[in-house]
């Protein structure tokens, strides 16, 4: 996995609304980004401690309460910056591909 892409995708998934960790995992699996679940937890903790994420405890019907993650204002700001960088990057790649062929 390229550096930083996983974080970018996690932020994108969370930006769509409050979400439970195992649902994030399901989305990442769908996107074929994540092989094992264990790697997601340290990542979420890190993003949370950097102030990009926060979470709420939500009661569940089938067991103890669950952590639901959401983006903070700072997280949204960083996500916007990453969006711009990503567009620059994909533009660079597309342009390079065209000039090569």
């Amino acid at each position: 996995m390229r550096k930083g892409i996983l974080e970018y995708c996690v932020l994108l998934i969370i930006s769509k609304g409050e979400i439970y960790a195992s649902d994030i995992i399901a989305e990442l699996k769908k996107a074929k980004l994540l092989v094992v679940e264990g790697t997601l937890y340290p990542l979420l903790t890190r993003l949370k401690n950097n102030g990009l994420l926060s979470y709420n405890w939500v009661e569940s019907t089938s067991g103890p309460p669950r952590k639901y993650y959401l983006l903070t204002a700072e997280g949204k700001e960083i996500l916007n910056k990453l969006d711009i960088t990503w567009m620059e990057l994909s533009y660079a790649i597309e342009t390079s591909k065209q000039t090569k062929s």
Binding site: M1, K3, E7
Partner: peptide, 14 residues
């Protein structure tokens, strides 16, 4: 698997 992931994860957020 975690060790492999650690290497791949960038410090881009920091």
């Amino acid at each position: 698997d975690f060790e492999n992931a650690d290497e791949a994860e960038g410090g881009i957020y920091e």
